[in-house]
Computed example of a mutant assay.
Amino acid sequence: MKRKNWKRIVVKVGSALISPNRKGCSSHYLLSIAQFIVKCRAMGTQVVLVSSGSVAAGAHQFPDGERSDITIKKAMAAAGQTEMIATWDRLFDFPSAQILLTHADLRDRERYVSIRDTIFSLLDHNILPIINENDTVTTDKLKVGDNDNLSAMVAAAADADALIICSDVDGLYDKNPHTHDDAILLSSVANIDQSIYAMAGGAAKGGVGTGGMRTKIEAAEKAVSHGIDTYIINGFTELSFNMLLNGKNPGTHFEAHEKPMAENEHWMRHTTRAQGEVIVESEFAPNLSDNAESLTSKEIIDVKGEFSVGDTIIVRKDDGTKLVKARSNYSSCLLNFIANQENEEFASEFEEQTGPIISKKNLANLEKE
């Protein structure tokens, strides 16, 4: 480990640490995390905190509410968010700031850049950014869904050196440690593949959080591809944080890629969400990542979904092979219109005047998936 070289880290804390019993916020587990953050800052490391827990923290104020009712959950989030921020604020002797996000904020390039600028400005003024998904206003179309993946997106936006995800176990095991006594902890993972996801199992069941080990692996995959070392550690024990401060690995270290993706390509691939698909013939196999303008309406078989100019789309072959994820310069309606033109000369002239369907500057290669 090279903790001493960290210039900026993101620490992700889940609902189970914030409100273990859903009876409001508890500082029982948060105190050691807060001390870790204080010590990191004292050593010159900037910290961004991604904190779940608003719904769990506010649940006790709705004793008669149905927790499965989305309206009640939004109200719980609204009530619990202030309590959660106040709890964190009491644990620090320096100022903190609240940033509430939806996926719509992150997948819009202009708003994403604005988020980056805000985080950098807060850090430059020694203010701790505390980030959470805005559960009060988010919908299925707008939400990230879990703060593990949100923390990875934030780590990428913040240009962090390390992402530390606090869990209820010591890290990633080769099998579920809650049900297998012979489960072995993986101290490091150099490559995240399907075998790693198989160890993670499915989503979390029960408890107070929305994620499980799988979402943590997803977050790690996003982060390491941006060159961010990622650690899954046990957030319930102070020893984990003391080990990190001493340059030791207390859990599972997911090793950052030596050649990380370019910032814009990473955002396109891991943060944006495709609103539709453009299907091309299987014989169409140019390297779109280098020659995006080679995609014309002649190669298009079908257009799926409804999207507008500027929305993100997937271009794939009709055999299912994904080629690229890109920003569309055409709406689905217009693309369908020109692709269905029998007069190819008309379509070619139209595209020549209007411009390419996708551009290299707004594209991420998916052929290696």
Rank of each mutant, 00 (worst) to 15 (best):
W6H: 13
V10E: 03
K12V: 01
L17R: 05
I18W: 02
S19I: 05
R22V: 00
Y29P: 06
I33G: 09
Q35H: 13
F36Q: 11
F36R: 11
C40Q: 13
L49G: 05
S52V: 06
V55T: 04
A57C: 07
P63S: 09
E66R: 07
R67G: 00
I70H: 08
I70G: 06
K73R: 15
K74H: 10
M76L: 09
A79S: 14
A79W: 01
A79N: 08
E83V: 00
L91S: 12
A97K: 10
L100G: 10
V113F: 05
I115P: 05
T118Y: 00
F120R: 14
N126D: 14
I130R: 06
I131V: 14
D135Y: 02
T136G: 08
K143A: 13
N147R: 04
N147G: 08
D148F: 06
V154N: 10
A155H: 10
A155Q: 12
A155K: 11
A157F: 02
A160L: 06
A162G: 11
S167W: 02
V169S: 12
D170C: 02
K175C: 11
H178M: 09
H178K: 15
H180W: 02
H180V: 02
L185M: 08
L186E: 03
S187M: 00
V189M: 06
A190E: 15
A190F: 05
A198S: 15
M199D: 09
G202M: 08
G209L: 03
M213G: 10
R214V: 12
T215K: 00
I217L: 12
E218Q: 13
V224R: 12
S225C: 08
Y231R: 05
F236R: 15
N242L: 06
K248C: 02
P250V: 03
H253G: 02
E263M: 09
H270L: 02
V280Q: 04
V280G: 09
S282T: 15
F284Q: 13
D290A: 09
E293Q: 12
S294I: 07
K298T: 08
E299Y: 06
V303S: 08
K304W: 01
E306S: 13
S308M: 12
D311M: 07
T312Q: 07
I314W: 01
R316I: 07
G320W: 01
T321W: 02
L323N: 11
V324H: 07
Y330I: 04
S331C: 05
S331I: 05
C333S: 13
C333V: 12
I338Q: 05
A339H: 06
N340H: 12
N343M: 09
N343L: 10
E345Y: 01
A347V: 04
S348N: 08
I357W: 02
I357D: 06
I358S: 09
K360C: 05
